[in-house]
């Protein structure tokens, strides 16, 4: 709790500082930021609507799932920079199933989501295999696979997946029966993405599984000290391989749900960098997957608030990336201090 409070005060403080540099009034910026994330108008002293909160939760959804993907890989001691690519191929697989397999409704959704998971896994497996059998560094291989995924996606949406007769490089929209629409009434209540519910549930299950089951224990051990794990009879290579594959699968799931829930089609700019933001989310999460939820909320809120701030004061919204970067830096510093302090 102290950490979260510290971070929040820190980011508000930094914000004020940065705008002083940018030449806007600190008060205006803080006020518009607050209004942007809360939906409460300070000027009129009244609650305007649930829009901003719903928007934050919408932005959170892919971050939670992808954050969990990166988190699982971190637990086996691997840095999955490839979540971005795995998310993209997950989206591609889902849109392919939705458009071309010809099954609709619940079965269609299940099939599309399953395809997304499998595609994400397939995209992570080469990196896992190279790591386990050849010792190639997963950071390098997953970055490379990101590039392959990006270009592969560009090719598909300009070619085979392109909507017939359209001049835009994008796939067709999937049918309405396959859309995972938000729960709630946009006018009157907060709306929730199904992907967010799935993500939060997955984090809870993962938190339980990692601590309370022998296989979760082994997975954490294999990442924390692979040599001691070998001596304890744990198959470290198997966990490295399947841990990365699972990470890819979860990232693929995020892509599939993002497609069915929010985008509805695969176009250029399908992911504004969820896979990279999720690295920060997973690092911020700390020891438990439950930490992913507030971390993703923080990131989403900063993004959302800075949008409003840009409209109100002209402060570029890219400032949010600066703040997120600073937070990660601060957390890293705090962790290091703790590990060196005796």
């Amino acid at each position: 709790m102290i950490r979260v409070a510290l971070l929040l005060s820190f980011c508000i403080g930094t914000l004020a500082l940065l705008l002083a540099v940018a030449g806007t009034s600190g008060f205006d910026v803080v006020r518009s930021f607050f209004e942007g994330i809360s939906g409460y108008s300070l000027e009129r002293s009244e609650f305007v609507g649930y829009g901003p909160i719903s928007e934050i939760l919408r932005r959170m959804a892919p971050l939670v799932i992808t954050g969990l993907a990166v988190f699982i890989a971190l637990q086996v001691g691997l840095f999955n920079i490839g979540a971005e690519g795995q998310l993209k191929v997950g989206g591609l697989a889902a849109v392919f199933v939705a458009l071309f397999v010809g099954v609709d409704g619940v079965v269609g959704v299940a099939l599309a989501v399953l395809a997304a998971i499998v595609a994400g896994m397939i995209w992570a497996i080469p990196a896992g295999a190279i790591k386990v059998w050849r010792g190639g560094h997963e950071v390098i291989t997953t970055i490379m696979l990101n590039n392959v995924a990006a270009h592969f996606a560009s090719y598909l949406i300009a070619g085979p997946l392109k909507k017939p007769g359209s001049s835009e490089a994008a796939s067709d929209f999937v049918s309405h029966s396959m859309r995972l629409s938000a729960i709630g009434d946009p006018g009157r209540t907060v709306t929730l993405q199904p992907a967010l519910i799935v993500g939060v549930l997955l984090c809870i299950v993962a938190a339980w599984w990692l601590v309370r089951t022998p296989s979760g224990f082994e997975l954490r051990a294999s990442g924390a000290n692979p040599i001691a794990s070998l001596f304890a009879g744990i198959s470290v290579r198997r966990f490295a391989f399947w841990g990365l594959a699972a990470s890819g699968g979860i990232a693929g799931l995020a892509g599939g749900m993002h497609l069915l829930g929010q985008e509805g089609r695969f176009a250029e700019g399908f992911s504004p960098g969820f896979g990279f933001d999720s690295l920060g989310v997973a690092l911020l999460a700390g020891r438990s997957p439950l930490g992913i939820i507030p971390a993703a909320l923080l990131f989403a809120a900063i993004d959302q608030g800075s949008l409003r701030t840009q409209v109100a004061t002209g402060l570029p919204k890219e400032i949010s990336a600066v703040i997120q970067g600073l937070i990660i830096l601060i957390v890293a510093v705090m962790r290091y201090r703790r590990s060196f302090a005796r």
Binding site: A224, N225, I227, A228, S339
Partner: peptide, 9 residues
Amino acid sequence: QLQGLIGSW
């Protein structure tokens, strides 16, 4: 330390 224990645990 290397083979028997997980220091951070």
